[in-house]
Simulated scan of single mutants.
Amino acid sequence: MKKNTLSLALTVLFATSALASNPIDKIKKSVSTEKSTVTWKGYKVTGSHYGTIDLKAGHLVFDGDQLIGGDFSVDMTTLVSHDLQGEDKGKLEGHLKSDDFFGTETYPSANLVFTNVEATGKNSYKITGDLTVKGKTHPVTFDLSVYGSKATANVKIDRSRYDVRYGSGSFFDDLGDKTIYDEFDLVVDLVF
């Protein structure tokens, strides 16, 4: 009995030592909110609009040099248009921040949390994450590239999934040339 107990104790000791000598080297790197950019572009039958929105906070998590996670928060109140000026610019920005679109007074932040990271090449990854906009959370999938201390991604988002209804053919009939397409693009350039 003593021999079995000693053998079991030694097995546990060596197994624990082996695990301790190969720890996972997780590093959480903060994203620079000043140097990073998020550019949006929305489309309608008669054209498009584009602008930027600011990151509030963000992190990428690495195991050695492999990306394994991430989380981001965007300040929806900073949504601005860059393709218009003057009164038209103010009207578009006010409308996008209103309850017709993103309701930034009630929902000042949007959040993304990576739920799965799959390496697809040396510096490229397929990301699946939970995106929360207007209090609604749905999965999104996109490609992300990492080079040194920079990362880039192009993300397509279907606004209808987040109850952003204004001008959407998914919710309203007979909009004609007043239709605003459900999908919009985010071009994300991160510096960490």
Score class of each variant (00 low, 15 high):
residue 4 N to P: 02
residue 85 Q to I: 12
residue 130 D to K: 12
residue 185 D to C: 08
residue 102 F to Q: 08
residue 70 G to F: 00
residue 18 A to I: 10
residue 73 S to C: 13
residue 126 K to R: 14
residue 116 N to V: 01
residue 10 L to G: 05
residue 33 T to K: 07
residue 88 D to P: 07
residue 171 F to V: 10
residue 178 K to H: 15
residue 95 H to C: 12
residue 122 K to G: 12
residue 125 Y to M: 12
residue 98 S to E: 04
residue 11 T to R: 03
residue 85 Q to K: 14
residue 111 N to E: 15
residue 109 S to P: 06
residue 8 L to Y: 02
residue 120 T to G: 01
residue 69 G to E: 12
residue 168 S to P: 14
residue 17 S to K: 06
residue 11 T to F: 00
residue 40 W to G: 11
residue 63 D to F: 00
residue 166 Y to I: 04
residue 176 G to P: 06
residue 17 S to D: 01
residue 146 V to I: 12
residue 38 V to W: 02
residue 138 H to V: 09
residue 117 V to G: 02
residue 78 T to Y: 04
residue 44 K to V: 03
residue 19 L to I: 05
residue 86 G to M: 05
residue 115 T to E: 06
residue 101 F to D: 10
residue 111 N to H: 08
residue 55 L to I: 08
residue 146 V to G: 04
residue 34 E to H: 04
residue 15 A to I: 13
residue 90 G to V: 12
residue 62 F to A: 00
residue 100 D to G: 10
residue 27 I to T: 10
residue 161 R to V: 08
residue 50 Y to D: 15
residue 129 G to C: 00
residue 134 K to Y: 05
residue 70 G to L: 01
residue 79 L to M: 12
residue 36 S to E: 02
residue 47 G to P: 13
residue 60 L to E: 05
residue 17 S to C: 13
residue 60 L to T: 11
residue 36 S to G: 02
residue 179 T to G: 09
residue 92 L to A: 10
residue 127 I to V: 04
residue 78 T to R: 07
residue 9 A to C: 10
residue 38 V to G: 05
residue 70 G to D: 00
residue 89 K to G: 14
residue 114 F to L: 04
residue 146 V to N: 01
residue 50 Y to C: 11
residue 154 N to A: 15
residue 132 T to D: 11
residue 173 D to I: 05
residue 137 T to D: 12
residue 109 S to F: 03
residue 129 G to P: 09
residue 93 E to A: 07
residue 46 T to I: 11
residue 128 T to P: 10
residue 14 F to M: 08
residue 88 D to C: 03
residue 142 F to H: 05
residue 147 Y to C: 02
residue 115 T to G: 06
residue 59 H to F: 04
residue 176 G to E: 11
residue 186 L to W: 04
residue 71 D to I: 01
residue 172 F to S: 03
residue 170 S to F: 02
residue 85 Q to T: 15
residue 34 E to I: 09
residue 79 L to H: 13
residue 188 V to R: 06
residue 192 F to P: 00
residue 162 Y to H: 13
residue 24 I to A: 08
residue 3 K to F: 02
residue 31 V to T: 07
residue 49 H to T: 14
residue 115 T to L: 07
residue 41 K to Y: 08
residue 170 S to I: 15
residue 62 F to W: 03
residue 150 K to C: 06
residue 22 N to A: 06
residue 54 D to G: 06
residue 158 D to H: 09
residue 98 S to M: 11
residue 153 A to G: 15
residue 58 G to C: 01
residue 80 V to P: 02
residue 167 G to F: 13
residue 158 D to S: 10
residue 131 L to S: 11
